[in-house]
Amino acid sequence: MKPFVYSANPARVIFGTGTIAKLPEEVKRLGLSRPLVLSTPEQSGHATKVEELLKSAGISCVGQFNGATMHTPADVTEKALAVVQAGNVDGVISIGGGSTIGLGKAIALRTDLPQIVLPTTYAGSEMTPIIGQTENGVKTTQITPKVLPEVVIYDVDFTMTLPVGLSATSGINAIAHSVEALYAQNGNPVIDLMAAEGVRALATSLPKIVSNSSDPDARSDALYGAWLCGSCLGLVGMSLHHKLCHVLGGTFNLPHAETHTIVLPHAVAFNAPCIPDALANLAKALDNDDAVDGLNVLLSKLNVKKGLKEIGMPEDGIDKAADLAVKNQYWNPRPIEREGVRELIRRAWAGEPARADIQ
Rank of each mutant, 00 (worst) to 15 (best):
G91R: 06
E258A: 13
E78S: 14
P333C: 07
A285N: 08
G67K: 05
T111K: 10
I311G: 10
R110A: 11
G165D: 05
T251R: 13
K139I: 12
L81V: 10
P353H: 03
T69D: 13
R29G: 05
L182D: 09
E26K: 05
Q185W: 06
A201I: 01
L118E: 10
D357E: 14
A325V: 09
Y6V: 12
A11V: 15
V83S: 04
R346W: 00
I130A: 06
P119H: 03
A322M: 05
V297W: 06
E315W: 01
G187M: 05
H46G: 01
I143F: 11
Q142M: 15
R347W: 09
V76Y: 03
I191R: 02
A350V: 10
K49Q: 15
G45T: 06
P24L: 07
I318M: 07
Y6T: 04
V50E: 04
A278R: 07
I131Q: 03
E197Y: 00
A80Q: 04
L302I: 09
G98A: 12
G351L: 03
V13K: 04
Y330A: 11
P163A: 10
I107P: 02
G63V: 04
M238E: 01
V152Q: 04
E343G: 01
L308C: 07
A108R: 01
I358W: 01
M70C: 09
I116A: 01
D293V: 08
L344I: 09
Y154R: 07
D289C: 07
P333Y: 07
M127N: 03
T48Q: 14
S33G: 13
Y224K: 13
V117L: 03
I131G: 04
G102L: 01
V89C: 09
R200L: 07
A57L: 08
L299C: 08
R200F: 08
T261I: 04
N186C: 10
E343D: 14
T259L: 13
S300Y: 03
L282C: 11
P163R: 12
D287E: 15
D287W: 03
G16R: 07
A123V: 13
R338A: 12
V199Q: 01
D221L: 15
T141C: 13
G67H: 08
I131K: 05
C61F: 03
I318E: 02
I143K: 14
L264S: 00
V76M: 10
N332S: 15
D215P: 11
N288Y: 10
A269I: 06
N271L: 14
A181T: 01
P35D: 02
E26G: 00
K208R: 15
Q115E: 10
